[in-house]
Nucleic acid binder design. Structure first.
Length: 271
DNA sequence: CAACGGACCTGCCTGC
DNA sequence: TGCAGGCAGGTCCGTT
């Protein structure tokens, strides 16, 4: 469920509460996530202080003394900060305890998320080693997209969702950015010129940045929220809007399937 | 290597 | 009201 803006919003929401705090224990109620939670994790984390809450692609990086925990929220995961004990719900699989009453609770109904410990540089971990540049960083531009797309015949939407090309562009923002750029999602990636990729890179950056801003205003409370807050819905122009009028030309928006994922676009504005 | 399909799960919505 | 079927914001892995 969470796309990059949501993961970043979670990071900013929880970081002030747990940075510098010592983990006193870990409660794993269900270790069966996308990959099993390592049975030694509680021992690895206990007594360690959280140095930093970072992010790379859609992974949160909880850096502690001596290692790093990679946390992915999958399709349905969430993290929230509790300042007093609350009974865990059916999908509250992991609690990070910080002494006192502070607790960071991981919930994930579909269990597509994961938690992976590494004692080494997390950026060299196999899960992150081959990740493409951060879309909001200086290492990502139209030149990146143009260069990597040469010779590729697959749809441009699948191309920008390939995490080795650029990290963290998910299904919603791929559709949104391609709409802004006026590029048809099924166009072969290798048949798009440099100028159009410059525009697409700019639109990927701006749509993600706008969504992060929206998340910051919509979801400022990561503490003690009652039950499921749900995920924020930033202003979307095409995603999940098949049949509704295109915001630019008013023709009905269309839905198709690309790479087994729902894809939304305007047949008039996107070429 | 690129491209594609399957696998991993639960919940929610639709239509019969 | 019950139930089957389709769909969901993400990777990751194996095969071609």
């Amino acid at each position: 469920m969470p796309e990059l803006p949501e993961v970043e919003t979670v990071r900013r929401g929880i970081a002030p509460h747990i940075t510098g705090k010592k983990i006193t224990g870990l409660t794993v109620r269900n270790h069966r996530l996308r990959r099993p939670v390592w049975s030694g994790l509680a021992r690895a984390l206990s007594g360690r202080r959280v140095q930093e809450v970072g992010r790379r692609a859609k992974y949160l990086l909880l850096t502690v003394d001596g290692g790093c925990l990679l946390v992915h929220l999958g399709m349905s995961g969430s993290l929230r900060v509790l300042t007093r004990a609350r009974p865990p719900g059916a999908h509250d699989h992991v609690d990070f305890l910080f002494g006192g009453r502070l607790c960071l609770r991981f919930c994930d109904p579909r269990r597509f998320g994961c938690m992976v410990w590494t004692a080494r540089d997390p950026l060299r971990h196999p899960l992150l080693r081959d990740a493409g540049p951060e879309p909001l960083g200086d290492g990502f531009s139209g030149a990146t997209l143009f260069r990597k797309s040469r010779g590729r015949s697959g749809a441009v939407k699948s191309f920008v969702m390939d995490g080795r090309v650029v990290a963290g562009v998910g299904n919603i923002y791929a559709s949104e950015a391609l709409f802004r750029a006026g590029i048809h999602p099924l166009r072969p990636a290798g048949r798009i010129g440099k100028a159009r990729y410059d525009k697409l890179a700019f639109d990927i950056k701006t749509v993600l940045a706008e969504a992060i801003t929206a998340g910051g205003t919509t979801l400022r409370d990561f503490v003690n929220s009652a039950g499921d807050r749900g995920y924020f819905t930033p202003r979307l122009q095409v995603y999940d809007r098949a049949g509704l009028p295109c915001p630019r030309c008013s023709r009905p928006l269309r839905r198709t399937v690309s790479g087994q994922r729902s894809t939304f676009y305007c047949g008039g504005c996107q070429r």
